[in-house]
Design a protein around this nucleic acid. Structure first.
Lengths: 164, 164
DNA sequence: TTTGAAAAATTGCGTGA
DNA sequence: TCACGCAATTTTTCAAA
């Protein structure tokens, strides 16, 4: 149940109070979410139901957004990780770029500060796939230029983890 | 046990044969790995043990690299997602950048093609945290320049998924 | 929060398509 | 070879305190 405080509760956003145990728990789950409550309990000096209770709260508060299998891009036929910086002539064109969400090789879309620009993280099958994708992006109205950074080697790739 | 074929087995890499069911299964798990084998079985028209068998194989073959909880960066105190492009004077300096792996705000490190460069994805607490991080990067021997792309909004953020 | 018990899921094994 | 059904084990989850 929701805590009874004299403050109005925000609908769904804003920071959430996390104690040291929460942060440790989140770190453990960010690294490997297949751990059982028994194992987590041992690592945190908590009983399994107590761990369960915390996980439930962290999911309800959207601190844990999802639990996902991390796949090897190359093994699923996507060998060419690339960051594409797209500059546009204004916010309206930027909005049009969001339609790229529906392409499976597009993994991330962020607007970035500075001249109207969008950073994409894409993982096409190969150079040919990248070429096709770039052609598609450059054909969008208002797109002025793209700059691609093709990844040669990946040394680290993980999601956010809490400060301990 | 290893398969008995007349070909030498590669140590650990190379592409893996995936049928349509494997790809569907991988898509489902990349989206939400908390689904039970019963649910997956219903979606794939397979019995739970058959699903389990496939998941086991996909993990053994390192197609599934890990299963992780995805956290909300802002809710765990990391509000300033930034891509940092670092140019160095050579490969030796590039190697020195890999030590940044140990910083919790550094999430990705990729070498990229072109003039010796490294793309970082970092998520410091705030602008002050970014400033400290950039100072640290620029103090590394051989680092010539950094260019930061601060994310304003994130519209899509997911991992690799197989082509269906 | 814990303990203890019920419900559900995971996983191994034997069988058959 | 691959998937199924059954069954043992483990895990999750819900009580009550």
């Amino acid at each position: 149940m929701a805590k009874k405080t004299n403050a109005v509760q925000p609908i769904s956003s804003g920071p959430v109070a996390l104690d040291a145990t929460d942060r440790k728990l989140l770190s453990l789950l960010a690294e490997d979410s297949s751990r059982s409550y028994v194992e987590l309990g041992n690592l945190l000096n908590l009983s399994p139901p107590a761990v369960h209770e915390r996980v439930k709260r962290l999911k309800r508060d959207r601190v844990i957004v999802a639990t996902q299998a991390k796949l090897d891009g190359c093994k699923v036929g996507r060998t060419l990780l690339t960051f594409v910086l797209v500059t546009t002539n204004g916010v309206a064109s930027t909005k049009r770029l969001l339609a790229l969400s529906s392409l499976p090789e597009v993994e991330e879309i962020h607007t970035v500060a500075g001249d109207s620009a969008v950073m994409l993280k894409v993982r096409p099958r190969d150079t040919e796939g990248l070429e096709e994708l770039l052609a598609r992006i450059e054909s969008i109205e208002g797109v002025e230029a793209t700059r691609s950074y093709i990844a040669l080697s990946t040394f680290l790739e993980r999601g956010p983890s809490p400060e301990l």
